[in-house]
Nucleic acid binder design. Structure first.
Lengths: 118, 118
DNA sequence: TCCTTAGTTCAAAAGTTATTGAACAATTGG
DNA sequence: CCAATTGTTCAATAACTTTTGAACTAAGGA
């Protein structure tokens, strides 16, 4: 089962901006950017809200084309659609992430580093 | 009489993104950017909505710190706060304007060039 | 002074978005 | 199979945003 995502050319500027204009979602994007390459599932973000509420915000990000969610077993692996966003809106994601990077007003995702037992 | 504007350091990233996540306001910003240096009053934007509705959207842009409105007689001269936005969120405004620049889905401000009678 | 122009304010209505809990589905491990 | 884990969906509610028209203010010109 795969989840619906817009194609790159269907990504809309006002929708992306609107979706990013929410502190919870901006915090999610900032955290995803800080962990690029690392596969993250939804429960990494539970600091930011309830399970139900995160499902809602993550769906918004996915439907806007900001993130991609891959179903892996019972988890969804979430990644930033950096290449697609860079292609569609050059420089936008970088400037948003840079601006969000040092914003103390945004909620933070606490360190939920998974211990890989040796 | 002067209208309230946030200081540069009071401009908030999520608020700016949220405010720009509206097609009417994005169209206003795009038009302001295309006419930088030219003083524009509210009635330049009447293509985008009613007088009352524009008053609302322009107030949102001003309160977010995206635009500046100067009272000149019975008009308000509206400008983009480009330097302030660039200082606070480097590259953000440029990438938004570039992305909006060729977006046919955004409403357009028709040519309301004022005839300067000779 | 009176009229016009430019824009704001207010209150109501309509629409949208965010948040919640309970119930549900799908996968995995015992 | 049973239970736990992961996340979704649904319906309700709360909270906010957008849009509208009518009434208003303030400045400028005749």
């Amino acid at each position: 089962m795969t989840l619906p995502h817009p194609n790159t050319d269907q990504i809309s500027l006002p929708i992306v901006l609107g979706v990013l204009g929410d502190p919870t979602r901006l915090a999610i994007v900032r955290y995803l950017a800080s962990k690029e390459g690392v596969p993250l599932n939804c429960s990494q973000f539970l600091d930011l809200g309830s399970k139900t509420n995160l499902s809602y915000h993550l769906a918004k990000l996915r439907e806007a084309g900001v993130t991609r969610a891959e179903v892996v077993g019972t988890s969804r692996m979430i990644t930033l659609r950096r290449a697609d966003l860079d292609a569609r809106f050059p420089g936008l994601l970088d400037s948003v992430i840079a601006a969000a990077g040092d914003d103390p007003a945004l909620p933070a995702v606490g360190g939920h580093d998974i211990e890989i037992s040796a």
